[in-house]
Simulated assay, not measured.
Amino acid sequence: MKQLGKLLFGASLVMLLAGCSSDKKDYLDRMAEEHDGDVPVENAASEISLSSAVTGEEVTYATVNGEDITGYLTKPEGMDQNRPGLIVIHEWWGLNDNIRMMTDKLAGEGYTALAVDLYNGRVAETPENAGKYAGSVNSEEAIDNLKQAYNYLAEQQGAANIGTIGWCFGGGWSLQTALALPQQVDATVIYYGRLIIENEQLKKLQMPILGIFGAEDSGIPPEQVKKFEAALNEVGVTNSIHIYDGAGHAFANPSGNRYQKEAAGDAWTKTTAFFEKHLK
């Protein structure tokens, strides 16, 4: 029966990924429109203060198709093992300095945080390249990558509870990770990521979901967000969904020019409180 269960799960995952790929071009086109003229540049908002000192390093956490995958691991200084872990998933720009900064910021809240790399070392500086890199991601390989990230935190870092968080492209993969590991992931945060609204898929989720979205985001429009929230409620998944008025796509990215300080600050407060409640 256990082997049959694995086969059925594998089949359902393939169907899910196939369904996701069917509207991939449409999604990437919408993201290109949302990021038109945007560039990931450092600015004053990128300068953060940490709640506690952290230590970060590049680590090899996975091997996909024979290729080693390097991510950024950071953790609070002077804290014991068995602290909660976080899988941090980059925006469509890739694993850049902004994501490392956000990973440090999360670690400063008391987590072992691993920023994964779904682009195999590539980092985009223009929307054109970002769209190209996002479009080239193989779904099955990405899921393999993210599952190994979970195992790395659980087995090599001794993380007692593990959550996921991602923004934009990474927000969608935060949800996909939760769907791929519904019994293992303990909490999931989605920042304006690509959504699944089919009840049959969402009913697999066993963890609480926090969703952060912008009312002016035409790539992930409020109507779709509300359908997602309704579907979660229908299948009994604990959730907290927030749509910020006046905020568009990527409003929480301090290194982009879509940044909205007030909305981003409130979203961060909700994020840290959510993880505090469900991972600690």
Results as ranks from 00 to 15, higher is better:
D26E: 15
I69K: 13
L195G: 01
K280S: 08
W268G: 01
D245Q: 14
M1I: 06
L205D: 05
T70M: 09
A159Q: 11
T238M: 11
T272M: 11
W173Q: 13
A124L: 03
G110T: 08
L118K: 14
M102L: 15
M79L: 14
G265H: 00
T55W: 00
N145Q: 08
E57L: 02
S218T: 15
K2H: 15
A180W: 05
W92V: 05
K270I: 06
M15K: 14
A45D: 13
K25V: 10
N199G: 02
M79R: 11
E34A: 15
S51R: 09
A113W: 15
Y259E: 01
G94F: 03
G108L: 06
G236R: 05
G94W: 06
I196N: 11
K147E: 14
N43W: 04
A231D: 03
K147D: 07
I87G: 02
Y152E: 11
R122V: 08
D68L: 12
D104N: 13
N257W: 03
Y192Q: 02
K24N: 12
K226C: 04
K105M: 13
Q157N: 07
A247W: 03
D26L: 09
P182T: 08
I143A: 10
L13V: 10
P208D: 09
G246L: 00
D68W: 03
A250Y: 01
T269D: 09
M15A: 14
E67H: 11
S139R: 08
I143G: 04
R30F: 02
E198S: 07
A113D: 10
N199W: 00
S136A: 15
A134H: 01
H278N: 07
N199V: 01
I197F: 06
H249C: 01
Y191S: 09
E109I: 03
G131F: 07
H242N: 08
W173R: 09
V54K: 08
R83I: 15
G108T: 10
A134D: 06
G85C: 14
C20I: 15
N96S: 12
I209A: 02
I48N: 02
G166A: 10
G163K: 11
G5L: 14
Q157F: 00
Y244R: 04
A142S: 07
N120L: 13
I162V: 09
A45S: 09
A124G: 06
E33H: 00
A45P: 03
E67Y: 05
P40W: 00
S218Q: 12
F251Y: 12
N65L: 07
L13M: 14
R258N: 05
F251R: 07
V14I: 12
L86Y: 06
Q224R: 08
Y192M: 04
T70K: 14
R122T: 09
A115Q: 04
V64H: 12
T272N: 08
A115K: 05
E33P: 00
A250Q: 01
P221D: 04
I89P: 01
I196C: 08
